[in-house]
Amino acid sequence: MSDTPGSASTLGRAIINKYPDIESKPLDGNKIELIVPPEKIRDIVSLIDEQVSDALPESLFGIDLTENKYELIYIFWSHANKMLLQLRVHLEGEKPEIESVCDIFPGLEWHERETHEMFGVNFKNHPDLRLLLLPDELEGKFPMRKSFVTDRSRMDETGLAQPKSRPESGGESS
């Protein structure tokens, strides 16, 4: 594979040369993190698909940073280059939206479905956004958001003094 970049920093430079509004941050080892604006995600993922011929879509998940801020993390692993690529996308809003990339990497289809039901991130042009793991009655409740309050009554039974609980910002309890 002569056209594949050897190291993570080379690939990072190649991507930044093409799309200058992307920031990169080297991690330890042959790993790199790219901070990608949401509207560029399809361009970057298809560029990775072109440049790294054996990219393995390892993971895609969301993080709730509270106050309607979300992060999406895409992780790709290349065996031939022993390289890990981590894309970070900042999203904002009550119902954040991003383009789906599951036609480029089919393996991310279910990851996107899971992120949709758990965090309420809408993936545009996703073929099939049914519930993956949750039962029907939890549709639209987005249980992995921090505002979803779970039942912690078991902890009161231990007889310990309780530390102060997490901030509850008007979520529905289960």
């Binding site: 078991r154 902890m155 039974e157 231990t158 007889g159 310990l160």
Partner: peptide
Amino acid sequence: CAQCVRACPVAAIRIDK
């Protein structure tokens, strides 16, 4: 000292001091 109660991941222990 209630360390066992704090360590329990499933809140199975109740302490009565």
